[in-house]
Design a protein around this nucleic acid. Structure first.
Lengths: 333, 333
DNA sequence: ATGGTCTGGTCAATCGTTTGACCGAAGGGA
DNA sequence: TCCCTTCGGTCAAACGATTGACCAGACCAT
């Protein structure tokens, strides 16, 4: 019940043993031989004083912080929320704390400077981090890192989802509905996910024996999606369905369809990647492909916890990918 | 360029000075008297070795971690994204790192145990934390805390927004449009924000000389909103406008209006609190009241940084509150 | 009686920084 | 010449926990 600063020494004094004993009891050191009643005394003292180990001292001595970091570009993007949840759950299960931060990629190096050395045992970089020499900064500091949902060019240290398969699922769904002119509203070509989804689209179209419809790229933003959709609809033979790489673009794309005086899904069907809660609030509710984002977070933590300094990881996460049909897809006119 | 574990001692050796000098140079100790060329040598050595101070050692010695925590109930809720951004920016400006975490309130105590002592200089609790003895745990550990957007019952240690004023703005907007039967779809009565918004609604109605329309409470969820709206519309004299306490409820409420065969805003206008990006994607786009959530995060960090152990804080954040008119409000039929 | 093993612990060095106390040399004033 | 400052640093004791090494006594076998 003391207010603060209870140390091992205090506990040891109350329990009338050496600090070493208290430490070993807390850490369940198997080499410790101790009488049950002594252990009880120690535990009672800990309880009585409300002792909590000092993380800084422990980190200093053991050179492990039992803390992982997760870096994301933007908290407002709900895609990351799912990744965070998965990562936090797994971290808790393995006895780590997961802390999440964001910063513009320009400020990322500065952020890591403020984090400093020895505070974090590893870093997950979700959808960010390739830029600005961060990687070499991490390597110099000997902080293990893994990229999520995004590949590093230099080192093989990433876990990604099977975006090609997701694209294929979307295209197959449209084909099954009877569509033959299926366009692709792609993401920006510098985004790794975008290129993988585009590749999946092309493969699936070939597989179905259909000609690749028009493809136009757009930023992962509603405005970009709207502009891109306008261009798609201006094509000589208007597509009857569009596979959109991303929900943000899809929101704009839907607007684009409406401003062309057309209706979804009557005139054109739309399906997008990532089943965000938001998708069901749109009008019409958006058909999406659900991917295991939470699993991605979990897997990242697991790998981080078991990674040896120079291991490489290049993993396409196996996990359920599923088409969620809502109202934005229907047979062609 | 060494790979890891560069310490003060290494730097001191290279610069041919005592560790103390290096430390004082880094921390810009004003009591240090040093020749410019010596300082240069030290700085050069730091640069050459790529030295970064060890945060654990520093925290241990100074008993300050230069790190604040922010706890939220759920990353998927975009309200918190704005708070986080504000808090992160302010923390960076003051030389702190802000780390964000979430956990069910049941797991909160466990989480803090894993965080341990001495790792965090203060904790912001956004929309959570009153439960489960967490507060007394924090006080025992002498970790300063502040609640954001949520009041603590026991201790006065919170910053909130002016939810009453937000409600008034919404009601005034509806009144100005000509509405007279304005109902209130409130939040759960245990939510502090909900009660403050309800109070604001009542005051504004009185102010306008209008009778308080029907009031029904609902969870902050779409399903809750839909059910509540159904009850509102079943009232003998149907309201022509509804002030909804929360966007999530409003999404359900809009669905509720549609399933009653009515149209927004032709038959009933809707306005809700918090101007989330999502609001502009709904159909019709939702009129909202914009509140300074980012400011709330900033202010929390500022206070945390300056708070004395037993200070109390009970602040209603002054900041711009603004009605954002979109398509969900119009004059009554 | 002696040596060996086991039990139930204790001792003390160490992790990397910070910081109050101290100190030798140079310069200045009386 | 002697004392006092100031300059430009150095010394060493913390901070709190961990952990390899060590040790006294009890017990057992030979």
């Amino acid at each position: 019940m003391k207010s603060s600063r209870v140390t091992l020494t205090d506990v040891a004094a109350v329990a009338k043993v050496d600090r070493a004993v208290v430490s070993r009891v807390i850490n369940k050191d198997p080499t410790l031989n101790i009488r049950p009643e002594t252990r009880e005394r120690v535990l009672a003292a800990i309880e009585e004083l409300g002792y909590r180990p000092n993380a800084a001292a422990r980190s200093l001595r053991t050179a492990r912080a039992h803390m992982f970091g997760l870096f994301i570009p933007d908290f407002a993007n709900p895609v990351y929320a799912e990744i965070i949840k998965g990562a936090e759950a797994e971290a808790a299960a393995e006895g780590y704390v997961l802390v999440t931060g964001s910063a513009s990629s320009a400020a990322l190096g500065d952020y890591m400077d403020r984090i400093g050395q020895g505070r974090i045992d590893g870093l997950l970089l979700a959808g960010t981090g390739g830029e600005s020499g961060l990687i070499s900064q991490l390597d110099r500091a000997a902080i293990p890192w893994i990229m999520l949902n995004n590949r590093s060019r230099s080192v093989k240290r990433y876990v990604i989802l099977d975006d090609a398969r997701a694209a294929a699922l979307a295209v197959e769904h449209l084909v099954r509905l009877g569509h033959r002119r299926i366009a692709h509203l792609a993401g920006p070509s510098r985004a790794d996910t975008a290129t993988r989804r585009s590749a999946g689209y092309s493969a699936a179209m070939r597989e179905a024996g259909l000609p690749e419809g028009p493809i136009v790229a757009a930023d992962y933003t509603p405005a970009g999606g709207a502009a891109a959709m306008a261009r798609l609809l201006a094509a000589p033979e208007r597509p009857t369905a569009v596979f959109v790489a991303n929900v943000a673009s899809a929101i704009g794309a839907m607007e684009g369809v409406r401003s062309a005086g057309l209706e979804i899904p009557r005139d054109v069907s739309i399906v997008a990647v990532h089943d965000l809660e938001l998708a069901s609030y749109l009008h019409p509710a958006l058909t999406t492909v659900r991917m295991p984002l939470g699993e991605l977070g979990r897997r990242g933590v697991t790998l981080l916890a078991s990674l040896k300094p120079d291991d490489t990881v290049a993993e396409v996460l196996a996990g359920p990918i599923q088409l969620i049909q809502r109202e934005s897809t229907a047979p062609p006119p």
